[in-house]
Design a protein around this nucleic acid. Structure first.
Length: 501
RNA sequence: GGCCCAUUAGUCUAUUGGUUAGGACGUCAGAUUUUCAUUCUGGAAAGAGGGGUUCGAUUCCCCUAUGGGCUACCA
């Protein structure tokens, strides 16, 4: 029987999970679903920091918003727990002992500062088989037993892995192919810190083994630490999992994704807002739909070869394949993200827009319109936007009187040349509107058709404030007559004062 | 600096030895439209540079350049 495929998403809770981590999570999730495997969430908190608690909360919330369903792990069921590394220290110690017996690890006594100094004086220094015998550690010949015992007793040591000398380690990566790294170029990485806690390298390998992880899908930044992981597997004589490294995400200028940079570029990097971590710019807050965001995530490094951009979740699952993941790093293209979101926006029901508008608009103004009318406004405006928030931008003139008028220069000169005519025209409007209290009595189409283009533009400016928006017929028939009259009067007064009539 | 990875238009990418180098976002133009948008049609726009291998190279190899990653008692 074939072994069940098990993958894990193993974020470290050191700040808010961003689009890069989410992409990794999503690809793991896809692979699990495709193979009826397990998708495990493991929290890698071997390094304890300030915001651990909130960061974990955020991971859970973010995954939920992206509809990524964990079926085993932290905060979920599972028989391989605990799924948080700070609660597994005992386990790591147990496995450390095994390596100790096999003499595959050793104690190293340099303090952080000592090593720093050493590195400054010795360029290209690497702590490994080529140098370790000259340094302060339990393998070195420089130290006598007394000094060694001193450090051991006082627990002033870290535990390092003993990497072999001049050995090529080959990482068989499903995306990048075989990558050869010589052990002379890698450090004897620290496995246990002086505070008796494991480092990521050790903890994650032990966990991956104990949790029966079959495929390690993670960002490319991990390629260079893979030899250490492989070495640990080999030391235990455990079967290696498959490695799949994903291309990195870069911002639109080719730099690393980071909060400060992305805010400048106005590209959100976080999925949702979260006050406790000070996240107030996100895909959700910018008006992205979860389904669109999933589509965006999928296309971050993955290209199905059929010249399509919009994929439902089902299609993604059907088509997803590591063969179609490209090797070069991915630049985020916010314009394209918006375009993808637009495609999804076109499909959703009006109630989402309705909800948004209701929240946005003061109730006394919102209630001027019946639900039917709001729906009509939505229907007429929704095809103009690519983010749900923008429904307000394209419909605000239904709810707010124009505060200022944006009049193009050619219209200004038209006004100046035809002052009296225009005032007459506006007055005429007002009279017609006042006469007919019920909308149905007014044939707006007739009025509009009789107007010259210039006059029609003027009418639009008087009601909308600028030359944008849906057709005048619908604007006039949707807004209450009383309000239209008011707006026209305002505009008339504006012209009179502005152009001294 | 050392080691590792990548390099097709502004961006995401297709094409793994023979193509008018295909698609998408963006951009530009035209059509539709009472304005603005939408929509539709069309255009411009690419193989980093230099060497090989080959009848032939975007595709294979080497060098250079550029970008990125790792080089923490961070993950």
């Amino acid at each position: 029987m074939k072994k069940k495929i098990r993958v894990r998403f193993a974020p470290s809770p050191t700040g808010a999970l961003h689009i890069g981590g989410l992409r990794t999570a999503f690809f793991n999730y896809l692979f699990a679903i495709q193979n009826q495997g397990d998708f495990i969430l493991r929290i890698e908190d071997t390094d304890i920091r300030k915001n651990t608690k909130y960061s974990i909360e955020y991971i859970l919330k973010a995954l939920k918003w992206c509809k990524i369903k964990v079926n085993e792990g932290y905060n979920h069921r599972g028989e391989f727990g605990p799924y948080i590394q700070s609660k597994r220290i005992k386990i790591y110690k147990k496995y450390l002992k095994i390596l100790k017996k096999k003499k595959l690890i050793y104690y190293s006594f340099e303090s952080k500062d000592e090593l720093k100094k050493y590195k400054i004086n010795n360029k290209n220094f690497i702590y490994n088989s080529l140098t370790r015998y000259k340094l302060k550690n339990s393998l070195s010949k420089n130290n006598n037993k007394k000094t060694i015992n001193y450090y051991l007793k006082n627990k002033k040591y870290v535990i390092r892995i003993k990497t072999p000398k001049n050995k090529d380690i080959i990482i068989k990566d499903k995306i990048y192919g075989n990558i050869k790294i010589n052990t002379n170029n890698i450090d004897d990485k620290i496995l246990f810190r002086s505070n008796d806690t494991p480092t990521y390298h050790f903890a994650s390998v032990i966990d991956d083994y104990l949790m029966n992880i079959t495929h390690i899908i993670r960002g490319k930044e991990w390629i260079y630490s893979s030899p250490i992981h492989i070495l640990i597997y080999n030391n235990f004589k455990w079967k290696l999992p498959k490695f799949i490294h994903l291309p990195l995400l870069l911002n639109n200028k080719g730099g690393k994704i980071s909060k400060s940079k992305m805010v400048k570029n106005k590209i959100p990097i976080h999925p949702i807002n979260y006050n406790k971590l000070n996240i107030n710019n996100s895909y959700k807050s910018n008006g992205f739909l979860p389904n669109a965001f999933i589509n965006i995530l999928a296309l971050l490094g993955w290209t199905p070869k059929n010249n399509k951009e919009i994929y439902s979740f089902k299609e993604i699952i059907k088509l997803f394949n590591f063969k179609n993941i490209n090797k070069s790093d991915v630049h985020l293209n916010y314009n394209k993200f918006r375009w993808i979101n637009k495609k999804y926006l076109n499909k959703i029901s009006n109630k989402y827009y309705y909800k948004y508008l209701k929240k946005k608009i003061k109730s006394n103004i919102f209630n001027l319109y019946t639900k039917k009318k709001i729906n009509k406004i939505i229907n007429l405006t929704k095809n103009r936007i690519s983010l749900i928030n923008e429904i307000w931008d394209v419909s605000s003139y239904f709810f707010l009187n124009p505060k200022t008028y944006f009049i193009p220069t050619n219209i200004i000169s038209y006004i100046k040349d035809n002052k009296k005519k225009i005032i007459l025209l506006l007055n005429k409007f007002i009279i017609i509107l006042k006469k007919n209290k019920k909308k149905t009595d007014i044939n707006y189409n007739d009025i509009i058709k009789k107007l010259s283009i210039f006059n029609l533009k003027l009418l639009r400016i008087s009601i909308v404030g600028k030359l944008i928006g849906i057709d005048m017929y619908n604007i006039l028939s949707l807004i209450k007559t009383k309000i239209i009259i008011k707006r026209i009067i305002n505009f008339k007064n504006f012209i009179i004062s502005q152009y001294k009539i």
